[in-house]
Design a protein around this nucleic acid. Structure first.
Lengths: 215, 215
DNA sequence: ATATGTGAACATTTTCACAGCT
DNA sequence: AGCTGTGAAAATGTTCACATAT
């Protein structure tokens, strides 16, 4: 059980979501085939993904839904609570603050920061926006595990450098820029512009369809 | 020039962003080496990615920044304007509406819908929220190219089915659920919960570190 | 001299196919 | 009989290394 690809981890999250639905519907058991079709993948892929972490199924019977849910939550590290700080109280930041789902999933936003003096002191969803200058100290005091970066692209790298220097090992970046982090720091990006461009590419593709012949 | 992987397309978007920065800084030319290092990839990867679409560089000299920008914009289909509809005027939806960057990039939000009668008629960033019932008709009338789905997970699939039936071929999904679309419809997901779980996994990993020995 | 474009080597990921439990 | 777990095969994606152009 070594070397797990990010795609595998992403799929585990999807399996978990679908399993929760199935559990809600009262399903006790599920086959890799069934799970795969609901997750848009293949049965072999499901089994292979799970096999990296152990053996969870019963041959001839499938997977026990509740058991597999626990197993996945444990694998994904979702059994604990994470302390999250949000940097940037702009549009996206504020939208995230209102997003109750995070709390329920165990990701609790404990502090919000902004560099703009006009934003500092404002209250959002029970939190007061704190000044950028308090960042390093607050990260340590609050024992922050994960930082969400929701600042303009131009300043994102400098914010990340500070956060990393302060000892944070996990960052979720919403700024539309490629960030550099040292090894040992986990970085994930949420980039709507990039996804829109992917759609644009797909649309452009299909309007000049068929195979070949340009000249 | 056939079969282009999604990762290649994603990287093209990143190259474009970095090239725009370089252009802003007055750079006339850039080597694959330089571009790669700024994009967090390798020179060979850059050259290979570009080579799927043609030959853009000058040997011994590198790539002309402005030329490559145009080429990438053309490849990604960014030279035209896209008409976008937003479905769901909740927190995320409203945050997106205020996001001026999309407009500048050529993605214009032309209509906003919500199923909640309390939201219908509200104005956001110069747009009036329209009732869900008008969806199909409006998509056709406005000639919508891309739909952004920002509704609760439970109703996302039914919204997508309607949108696809209405002829839309590109969807950006913010609902935390795996959507099914027929072949020929491009679907991209922006899923913060999934990314947070990826971070959770990474953190869980490194707290039980080293290689092996659990029992 | 320098840096591209690319076939061939390598690595990783996905799929196949089947032995082995239940 | 049914469905998992898993090596082996196939497909896909990345890196190397070098001939080639300026």
């Amino acid at each position: 059980m070594r070397k797990v690809s990010p795609s595998t981890v992403g799929r585990l999250s999807i399996y978990l979501r679908v399993l929760s639905e199935l559990d809600g519907l009262g399903a006790e058991t599920v086959s890799s085939e069934e799970l795969a079709s609901r997750c848009g993948t293949t049965a072999a892929q499901v089994r292979k993904d799970l096999s990296f972490f152990g053996t969870f199924g019963k041959r001839g019977r499938g997977y026990a839904v509740e058991e597999l849910i626990s197993a996945l939550r444990s694998i994904l590290g979702l059994e604990r609570r994470y302390r999250v700080a949000l940097i940037g109280a702009g549009r996206i930041g504020v939208a995230l603050l209102g997003y109750r789902d995070f709390q329920e999933q165990g990701f609790h936003i404990e502090a919000v920061f902004d560099a703009d003096p006009k934003k500092v002191g404002q209250r959002w969803g029970g939190m007061t926006v704190r000044p950028d200058a308090e960042l390093e100290q607050a990260l340590a005091e609050e024992g922050i595990d994960i930082v969400i970066v929701a600042v303009p692209a131009e300043v994102a790298q400098s914010v990340v450098d500070r956060v990393v220097a302060a000892g944070v090992r996990a960052i979720l970046n919403f700024a539309p820029t490629k960030l550099q982090v040292p090894a040992g720091v986990a970085l994930k990006n949420v980039n709507m512009a990039l996804e829109l461009e992917g759609l644009s590419f797909a649309l452009a593709r299909e309007s000049r369809p068929r195979t070949r012949r340009t000249a």
